[in-house]
């Protein structure tokens, strides 16, 4: 990948496999990564260390991932340290999942992570605009198309979909793109064989995804090569989205 040299990247949310794979992909292409999450210091450091092996120095910062002031503070720390910000990867879908873990109804819809995504983007926009070529990539989940017992989660994910499209229209003239990568079923060691076989039935390519599959798509949207692509939702799901309406 070209055009990434020394670009400043902020990856916000759970430092999970997708965040780490994305960090590795972009760090390997020459960017400087900062992970930002509400996790313990040791977890953030471990994730950063695993990215450092692939490229430039990788930093991390702890945040409560809550509220406008926190979001402004996160962006402020980035600009203070680097003087700029080029690429923001919003990985709050995992946060939403955790927030909804104990939910039994719509009253516990995990909108907290969505509103934080909005606060973060709001805080980052002036800095991204200043470059005239900023990139925002939101990681979504295929569950936004609907999933039984996930009404709250689906609606939170669907908000990210609306956010991407509206924001894209608003900032298209500024050279800043915003796109969503929707991840499908990603390999999880905790998945038992029976469950895996059931999931595979609905995936046309007959394999589970890897975090790297999602990272590769994020890499495309984050690159200069995708400067004319904005407001789009790309499903990285082995074709499973084709079984759903509203996925096109």
């Amino acid at each position: 990948m070209s055009g990434f040299d020394q670009k400043i990247v902020l990856i916000v949310g759970e430092p999970d496999e997708v965040a780490i794979a994305t960090g590795r992909k972009l760090a390997g292409a020459g960017t400087v990564i900062t992970l930002c999450g509400d996790n313990g210091h040791s977890q953030l450091e471990a994730a950063s260390a695993s990215i450092r092996l692939y490229g430039n120095d990788t930093g991390w910062m702890h945040s409560e991932l809550s509220g406008a002031e926190d979001a402004r503070n996160v962006v402020g720390q980035m600009t203070e340290k680097y003087g700029r910000l080029d690429i923001v990867v919003v990985n709050l879908a995992a946060e939403a999942r955790m927030q909804s873990r104990n939910s039994v109804g719509l009253d516990q819809t995990p909108y907290g992570s969505v509103s934080y995504a909005m606060h973060l983007i709001e805080a980052a926009l002036p800095v991204l605009r200043a470059n005239g070529q900023g990139r925002i990539v939101v990681i979504g989940s295929i569950d936004y198309l609907g999933a039984p017992e996930h009404a709250g989660l689906s609606s939170a994910y669907a908000s990210l979909f609306g956010l991407t499209r509206s924001l894209a229209l608003q900032i298209a003239c500024d050279g800043v793109t915003v796109n969503t990568v929707v991840k499908g079923d990603i390999e999880d060691p905790a998945m038992v064989e029976e469950e895996k076989a059931k999931v595979l039935q609905s995936i046309p390519v007959k394999r589970l995804g890897q975090a790297e599959d999602v990272a590769n798509a994020i890499g495309y949207f984050a690159a200069d090569a995708a400067r004319y692509v904005t407001g789009q939702t790309l499903f990285v799901c082995g074709g499973r989205s084709m079984h759903y309406s509203m996925s096109i």
């Binding site: 499209r165 894209a168 229209l169 298209a172 499908g184 046309p204 390519v205 394999r207 995804g209 890897q210 790297e212 599959d213 590769n216 798509a217 890499g219 495309y220 690159a223 090569a225 995708a226 004319y228 692509v229 904005t230 407001g231 789009q232 790309l234 499903f235 990285v236 799901c237 082995g238 074709g239 989205s241 084709m242 096109i248």
Partner: peptide, 27 residues
């Protein structure tokens, strides 16, 4: 650029999709 991305092995988990390269016009 979009063709090159979809042509690689890196896009092996992407299929059946429509990628709009239209500067947001589809929105």
């Amino acid at each position: 650029n979009a063709v090159c991305f979809l042509a690689t092995e890196e896009s092996s988990f992407i299929t059946g999709q429509v990628l709009y390269v239209c500067g947001g016009r589809s929105l």
